[in-house]
Amino acid sequence: MIGLNHYLILGTCLFGIGIYGVLSKRNAIAVLMSVELMLNAANINFVAVNHFIRPDQAIGQLFAIFVIVVAAAEVAVGLALILSIYRHASSTNLNDFNLMKW
């Protein structure tokens, strides 16, 4: 029987994979994708908790919808920023963006 714990573990694993991606990927777009994984990990938690603990109130599902909308806005801005920096550096590799240090 699959219960709340399975979903929470799935969410945590996904979150861990996302953090690993953000820290290890060098491509700006791949990093954005990893951030999306982390947001979706939180979404899984929200929906699972809503279903198993408080099925009477739809707070968790509501939160998940808000997160999806905000994530879409974030990605739209993110891709625009990556385009804008690509015009300067002709690269999306984060190692190339080092005009400012310490």
Binding site: A41, N45, F63
Partner: peptide, 8 residues
């Protein structure tokens, strides 16, 4: 994302 996970 970190904060959101904490909130969840």
């Amino acid at each position: 994302a970190v904060m959101l996970f904490g909130i969840s």
